[in-house]
Design a protein around this nucleic acid. Structure first.
Lengths: 132, 132
DNA sequence: TGGCATCTAATGCAGGTGCATAATATGTAT
DNA sequence: ATACATATTATGCACCTGCATTAGATGCCA
């Protein structure tokens, strides 16, 4: 793959990630009291529509195991999820979304979508890719 | 812009950012003693081929002003840049790369390129974008 | 059963980041 | 010249993250 394209794509990824993350942190935080990681975890559970083991979530969210463990701890503290023991494998933890968690996620989802729409509308899906 | 495309692009950005950042942190760190931010700052100075003011760097690197200030402090500690006063505006700071900084950057550049090549070669420049 | 490697999740810790603020310099208007 | 708003960089602080490690559970094999 052409190096210029690779570097250009990388710059695009960096720019979009930075812009979107900042905006999400602000909007989700101010309007819904959620960080991007918290929202993402809720979103994945809602999407699967079932309780998930921590390790399953690990594959879906781009966080280390320890970071995810703490995100879930924060969510539990906020009563948006519960951590239920897994009876068949007592090492495992099921993360279950609460009704309040569903409500909060449903409220935050349009905000997230709106932020992403705005960010990606400004810049084309993939720009000229002029590397330097 | 279609919502599915937006969400799919966002997932792509998240995935690439995560993979590439982890790899860069590992490779640049282990092999050259540089973090991604440190490398990026050196890279921008080399690219412009002149001393830059902190604020100019701020526009090019996706870091807050405070984070950049500290990155430069670390680079100065490592003798890879110097912080020179700006005579015309004594608020300003010029960040100048040292010979050792150039050497280190030159050594690290192929590593960075190789990491990016590998990451972006695996996944196409923009995948199917199936959102969920 | 006992011993041991493996797996899962939680935690101590160090480090980087952003926000708010401080400290200093500049420019402008009166 | 003074006062005040603005600009530039540094710093205190809280928070989040990853790495390494720990604690506990499981599986396997002798």
């Amino acid at each position: 793959m052409d190096e210029q394209v690779v570097v250009g794509t990388w710059r695009y990824v960096l720019a979009m990630h930075s812009k979107a993350m900042c905006a999400l942190e602000r909007e989700l935080g101010d309007r819904h009291g959620l960080g991007p990681s918290e929202f993402e975890v809720l979103d994945r559970i809602v999407h699967h529509d079932r309780k998930l083991r921590l390790q399953e979530l690990c594959d879906e969210v781009h966080l280390s195991q320890s970071a995810l463990s703490r995100v879930v701890a924060r969510l539990e503290k906020a009563a948006l999820v519960t951590r239920d023991a897994c009876s068949s494998d007592r090492r495992g933890i099921f993360v279950c979304i609460t009704p309040e968690g569903r409500t909060r996620h449903a409220a935050a989802l349009p905000t997230q979508r709106a932020v992403l729409q705005e960010i990606f509308a400004e810049a084309p899906a993939l720009p000229g890719l002029a590397a330097r």
